[in-house]
Design a protein around this nucleic acid. Structure first.
Length: 202
DNA sequence: CGCAGGATGGGCT
DNA sequence: GCCCATCCTGCGG
């Protein structure tokens, strides 16, 4: 497989929606023991667009210990705990001090599938990574990876695995943000059409 | 199959 | 003290 770790410039693009779109088809990788890897192709993302976005943790420019990661440079991992039990993996985008992020909502399992099944014992083979909490469990992502540099070697994203044409991308409203007022209807959830691994509906 | 409800803990008002 | 960028279980059709 001829893929390569995405460089800083991929993440520092000024438009978070563009980065969310370009992330589709790229490979999220977490290294395991003995040089092996657990990895999946990104098939669903959601953009969280700066301080104006009411659905964002950084809405209104809010800065707390948790959200501080969102203000770092594009190419930083933002991982947080949700509902007391699950983690969410996000990619910070853009320049420092401007809180853009992309939530990775679903993967198509690619490597380390046995390890994924071990971590997701009790669920069926097709439910390994089709949701933002599920993929974190399958890859072993937790709060320790918050703030990790995606140009580093703890977690990263590789390009070139699959080309997704614009026509193959579907968009719809984001999930679980009913409190977000005028931003509830923004179609900032992106997914690969006809991809069985996406979460929820098309 | 679909849907209702519970789990569970850090962050924020 | 309430709110989550969720998932799983159990129950009914």
């Amino acid at each position: 497989m001829t893929t390569r770790k995405l460089a800083r410039e991929f993440y520092t693009h000024p438009d978070v929606l563009t980065v969310a779109r370009r992330l589709l088809g790229q490979v999220l990788v977490v290294p395991a023991r003995n040089g092996t890897r657990v990895a999946g192709i990104i098939v669903e993302t959601e953009a969280y667009r700066g301080p104006q976005d009411r659905a964002s943790h950084a809405y209104g420019g809010r800065r707390t210990m948790r959200t501080e990661t969102m203000y770092r440079i594009g190419g930083t991992a933002y991982v947080y705990l949700i509902y007391g039990r699950y983690h969410q993996f996000n990619v910070v985008t853009g320049v420092e001090e401007v809180p853009h992020a992309v939530l990775v909502r679903a993967l198509e399992p690619l490597q380390g599938i046995r390890r994924m099944r071990d971590r997701r014992r009790g669920t069926s083979a097709h439910d390994l990574t089709n949701g933002p909490g599920k993929l974190c469990m399958a890859l072993g992502v937790d709060g320790r990876l918050d703030g990790a540099d995606l140009i580093g070697d703890r977690v990263w994203i590789e390009g070139g695995a699959r080309q997704i044409s614009p026509a193959a991308i579907a968009c719809g409203p984001r999930i679980g943000i009913d409190y977000a007022g005028a931003y509830v209807g923004k179609r900032w959830r992106l997914c690969v059409r006809d991809e069985p691994a996406v979460s929820g509906r098309r």
